[in-house]
Design a protein around this nucleic acid. Structure first.
Lengths: 211, 211
DNA sequence: ATATTCATCTTACCTCTGTCAACATGAGCG
DNA sequence: CGCTCATGTTGACAGAGGTAAGATGAATAT
């Protein structure tokens, strides 16, 4: 039960015999995903931490497990960003919806590899349970916005879950298309992406049907 | 310039010394993706066709190129399904929108691995140009629905492209979530998926704002 | 008809990756 | 003080993508 080097920033090298490898590996994997120079490989993560390529197997049964841990961390970051954006958007539910959606999309644009990992297929459903939960948790702010919006009368009454799922789908699809189909928009063109989302948000609010 | 076994269905074994390997490989790769028993590997595709694992390199510079060809075929299938659904939906643009969206989602649900490949990241943008074009082509029916709907007055006047992108994002996100986040809905529960989409379609038509 | 050419295919081999098995090390407890 | 067991290391293996060099035979020229 001895803890040191909690955050694993980059303080001392090898704490003593071993450090808290598990977290360090997740950090390293995250870093590799962010840089996106090379594909995330178990050996690369181990090397980044300075251990042998089989050391990870003392903390993760296989690569998928490491990936799952990384994905969970990713969902934590996503939830933070979305929730932060929501509280910063003021009281208007429509504004909150816009802010959370934009935050979601930019999270994907800023961390495409991580985003893909988070929402990619889970090869073994062993670890998928926690990932699932983390994802649902990140989805919560959106549900809250919808519920509060309906209660406040900013959104017309209806099925909260259905509305939240719809918004999630819209924003998720836009994020996905933004990072992997750079047809008309590049990830660098943040204003273009924001504009596109604002247009979709407006359509979502007003509906396609004539008034 | 000798052609035989055009469709490559499964007629004769090895036409003569060589067949039209290229198409056969794409077929095999598609098959493997559909079955989804094992991950799609170059060697598996080669073995399925009955050639050595390096034979594919005479037709594709690398694995990515094969994958690109498969993705293009996938987009063809997707476009077919969507366009078929559209014409079968009658004259009402709203009904066409619903039909195309549902077709899109079920395409993903029915061919998840292929769908992921089609929309997954292109590691080298060398071949990505054709894939891009194929994807855009599959997107066309949606644009048409929007344009015609606006012209007909079924949808209120507005930016056709923005509306089409919005609809695409919604449907794409829902498809993606349906295949990789089987939280509340399993791929088998087709009626549940359809219901979820109908709800989203309704929201998209009516908008979130109160009337 | 025969020889030649060249796309196509095979064999052999390389590197990289995930994973397993056997061995090493040292922290903490009896 | 010595054991034990979690944690790490070394070494090996199989399966993947990819390259290089040689084989094979269909098409073409002579």
């Amino acid at each position: 039960m001895s803890f040191m080097d909690e955050t694993g920033e980059k303080g001392d090298e090898k704490p003593y015999h071993h450090g808290n490898l598990r977290e360090a590996l997740v950090d390293a994997a995250l870093g590799i995903l962010e840089r996106e120079e090379a594909p995330l490989t178990l050996r690369a993560a181990a090397k980044a931490v300075g251990v042998s390529h089989t050391a990870p197997y003392n903390h993760f049964p296989d690569k998928e497990a490491l990936l799952a841990a990384v994905a969970i961390r990713g969902f934590g970051k996503l939830e933070d960003k979305v929730e932060t954006a929501r509280t910063a958007a003021g009281a208007d539910p429509a504004a909150q919806l816009a802010a959370t959606g934009e935050a979601y999309i930019f999270f994907a644009v800023d961390h495409p590899a991580l985003f893909r990992l988070m929402f990619g297929p889970r090869k073994q459903d062993g670890h998928s349970e926690e990932v699932r939960a983390a994802g649902l948790s990140a989805f919560e702010p959106l549900v809250r916005v919808m519920r509060e919006g309906m209660e406040a009368g900013t959104f017309h009454e209806g099925d909260v879950q259905a509305a939240a799922v719809t918004a999630w789908s819209l924003v998720h699809g836009m994020a996905q298309l933004a990072i992997d189909r750079t047809d008309t928009l590049t990830p660098e063109d943040r204003e273009g992406i924001a504009a596109r989302f604002r247009a979709s948000h407006a359509i979502m609010m007003q509906g396609l049907a004539p008034r």
